[in-house]
């Protein structure tokens, strides 16, 4: 059991969940995740850790409303109990002084990239942060990201920010502008990570992506989260979640993420019937 300290909507469809989990807060490092179950009948789903406070014993994740599980999480209030909140799971991100690093994030990844950017900055890197949002009102955590970035570049389709082009295009032009980019880290929806990896492939700049396949236990026991990297099957929960984006079998990952598309719709309908009847 873990207590919810705070749950709030940051922007439409994206929520923040802060949970009292002192052991997780004591151990976690950038790039790791927790497995959460909203209620006794819920599903176990992974959420990337976006921030933590060891003193307060709290851990923060950001999630986007998609299916039943995230719907249920979005209805939590401070003081509610979560039956499952386990972590920190997965291997931490590789943090070193690489030189110049581009951090690209979109949707929940805007928050998920934050602790990695912070750690990379602290390790002495020049951090260039690229943020992608569908519309300017969907941007959040601007202050936090500014503090840890040497440059913050935001792309929104309504062009209220720096540009309106999809961020992988910007990544492509950035690689040409900059004298040297030593590494790229991309977190967000699978498509964004895929496109970022493709953008850097010609120049051969190492691009780490934080994969988000479906998981169950999160400790390597079930193999639900298998992904192919360099032709070998890996478990994202224990071998990842970070992988070199140039080695990933993306079509397979897209298909596996959609494994239960019809069931997700069915589940959501059942949940709404139950909730509103």
């Amino acid at each position: 059991m873990a207590k919810v300290l705070r749950r709030e909507r940051l922007v439409p469809n994206i929520h923040l969940l802060e949970v009292h989990a002192p052991e997780v807060a004591r151990k976690c490092r950038p790039g790791q995740f927790v497995i959460v179950m909203s209620d006794e009948r819920g599903e176990r789903i992974p959420l990337t850790i976006a921030d933590w406070d060891a003193k307060r014993g709290s851990v923060t994740s950001i999630f986007m409303l998609v299916g039943t599980s995230t719907q249920k999480l979005s209805l939590l209030k401070a003081g509610d109990d979560l039956p499952v909140y386990v972590g920190p799971l997965g291997r931490p991100s590789d943090i070193q002084n690489f030189g110049t690093v581009v951090c690209a994030g979109g949707c929940f990844g805007i928050a998920a990239i934050y602790p990695i950017a912070r750690a990379l900055k602290k390790a002495g890197n020049r951090v260039l942060t690229l943020i992608d949002v569908k519309a300017s009102y969907l941007f959040y955590w601007e202050d936090k990201l500014k503090k840890v970035s040497d440059r913050l570049f935001v792309s929104a389709r309504d062009s209220r920010y720096d540009s309106k082009e999809y961020i992988p295009y910007k990544l492509d032009s950035l690689l040409k502008e900059e004298k040297k980019v030593d590494r790229v880290v991309a977190i967000g929806c699978t498509y964004l990570m895929y496109r970022c990896a493709e953008a850097t492939r010609p120049a051969g700049v190492k691009t780490m992506v934080s994969l988000n396949p479906i998981m169950v236990d999160g400790t390597g026991m079930c193999g639900a989260c298998r992904v192919s990297a360099d032709g070998k099957t890996k478990f994202a929960c224990v071998d990842g979640p970070d992988f070199d984006g140039h080695t990933i079998d993306w079509p397979e990952l897209f298909a596996r993420r959609k494994s239960y598309f019809d069931d997700e719709v069915k589940s959501l309908c059942a949940f709404e019937r139950e909730r509103f009847s």
């Binding site: 009948r41 599980s69 069931d263 997700e264």
Partner: peptide
């Protein structure tokens, strides 16, 4: 088999959609 049985036994997928795990 671990995943299949875990979904059905631990997560009760046989009672989907009453339980959320498919």
């Amino acid at each position: 088999a671990n995943e299949y049985l875990t979904r059905v036994n631990l997560m009760r997928a046989y009672e989907f959609p009453f339980y959320d795990t498919p």
